[in-house]
Amino acid sequence: MIPPVALVLGLALKSLFVLDYVHVITGASWTGFDLYTGIVLSRILRSLEVPARVEVAKRLTPTTFFIIPSLAAVAITSGIYLAQAMGKFDLGDPWILAAGAIVVVLTVQGFGVFLPNGVRIFLELAKAKPDPALISRLTMRNVRLAASQAVFQVLIILVMAHLAVY
C-alpha cells in the first residue's frame, strides 16, 4: 500500500521531486526484483528438487501477490504523470512510443500471466492434496517470465535515460 499512497502524496503536494522519487524507486524496485528472480533465483530453483521448489513457492508467492502489482502500477502511473508534468508526453516522439510499447508488454505479462499464475500456485498450495508437479511448473514459468520482464525493463531504463537527458 505504501507506493500508491506515496504517489497520492506526491500529487497532492504538487511536488515534481516527490513524483520523480516515487517513479524512480518503484521502477528500480520492480526491475531489481525481476532481475534477481530471473537471474539469481531461477538458477537456484533449477538446482532444487520439486519438493524444495514447492517450499520456496509457499513463501515466495503470497509476497508477490501485492508487492509486484503495486510497484508496477505505481511505476507506470507515476511515469505518465511525470512525463506530462515535464511536458514530454508527446505521442509523436518515438522514444515515448517505445516506452509505451514496452510498458504494454510488461503490463500484459505482469497482470495477464504473472499474477494469475501466482494465484493458481497459491490455490494449489491451499488444497488438501496439492500437486507438486503443477506448483513446480507454474513457479518455473513465473521465474522464466521474470527473466523476460528483466530484459524489457533494462530496455525501458535505456529509454528513460534518453528521455531524462534529451
Binding site: M1, P4, L7, V8, L11, A12, Y81
Partner: peptide
C-alpha cells in the same frame, strides 16, 4: 490499489 490510483486522476 486501483482505488488509490483512481484517486490520483483527481489530483492532476
Amino acid at each position: 490499489i486501483f482505488a488509490i490510483l483512481a484517486l490520483t486522476a483527481f489530483l492532476t
